[in-house]
């Protein structure tokens, strides 16, 4: 559990970060909270000759809620997500999700930017951001661009982000309707056996719109358009929920691990999704 030697960089601004990334290419990685990267380095599964700590970089912190839009700096911690009152009013699903991530000590350090940028299929925020249809802001040598969360993930640890780019912010329209983040895990600190993020709009007794994303059931987060479609226009009755579950089961591709075999995970995915839909509908 001793990492290989590395150079530690602590630039004060994005220009400094980009310059280091351009200089060192593949040999450099940025670090936000470090709760994924540092263990990988200690296990020597990741060798990072140049580690760029983002904590002194100006402009990466802060939560803004304005004009129906929420913007999160990449260095906002999970703890800050939980504590922020404006966010709790505007997008309470973030607090619900953040509270089931690891433990308080990890949440004091772990950041939302690191969580979405790392591309770890076990992380909770990527699925949630897909559910919210968030946009990620990437800054690189050629300036700034945005990528939809739903387009960001390619495979485990593989994303749309270029090596010289840094994910600096996350933004999404303030959600409306009912919400739920449901997660089954073996213990505190574990990744999900299955997790579901659900947001439902209710119009009278009918579901006007639905957004559903699943976590740790494929090598990327799974936003299931078909599952949302299955609920839209229905009264979210048993048949509709069952159709949504079936749609998700068609989209996920879990693998066996110590949490259990594929059949178990698929079954639990359906149960977790059903519970998330029911809770979200109850809040809609």
């Amino acid at each position: 559990m001793i990492p290989a030697a590395f150079e530690y960089h602590r630039p004060a601004d994005m220009a400094g970060v980009i310059a280091l990334l351009e200089e060192h290419g593949d040999d450099a990685r940025v670090m936000a909270g470090g709760h994924s990267l540092i263990p990988m380095m200690k296990l020597r599964m990741a060798e990072i000759p140049h580690l760029i700590d983002l904590q002194d970089v100006a402009g990466l912190k802060g939560i803004a809620v304005a004009e129906g839009r929420v913007t999160l700096g990449a260095m906002v911690t999970q703890h800050e997500l939980i504590q922020h009152q404006g966010l709790a009013n505007t997008a309470p699903i973030l607090r619900e999700a953040a509270l089931v991530i690891a433990d308080p000590q990890v949440r004091y350090m772990g950041t939302v930017g690191g969580n979405v940028a790392n591309g770890d299929p076990g992380n909770d925020m990527p699925g949630l951001m897909q559910c919210l249809d968030a946009e990620f802001t990437l800054v690189g040598p050629d300036g700034q661009r945005t990528v939809a969360a739903r387009d960001f993930y390619e495979a485990a640890y593989m994303t749309e982000r270029e090596d010289e780019e840094v994910l600096t912010a996350i933004s999404f329209a303030a959600p409306s309707g009912g919400y739920a983040y449901e997660k089954q895990k073996r213990k505190i600190g574990d990744y999900a056996t299955a997790a579901a993020a659900v947001i439902l709009q209710k119009d009278g007794g009918t579901c006007a719109a639905a957004s559903i994303a699943m976590t740790n059931l494929s090598d990327v987060p799974v936003w299931s358009d078909a599952a949302g479609e299955a609920l839209t226009g229905t009264s979210v009755d048993a048949a509709a929920v069952s159709a949504a579950v079936q749609a998700v089961l068609d989209d996920i591709d879990p693998v066996e691990d110590n949490r259990g075999p594929v059949a178990f995970k698929r079954h639990v995915a359906g149960i977790i999704l059903t519970r998330a839909i029911q809770r979200a509908w109850g809040r809609a």
Binding site: D103, R186, K187, I188, G189, Y191, N258
Partner: peptide, 23 residues
Amino acid sequence: AYDDLGNVKTGTLMDFFLPTAWE
């Protein structure tokens, strides 16, 4: 737990269950 090749499958506290106050 071991796999058929004798690899330890539960070599870290991610998989080896050590209860906290929460559990």
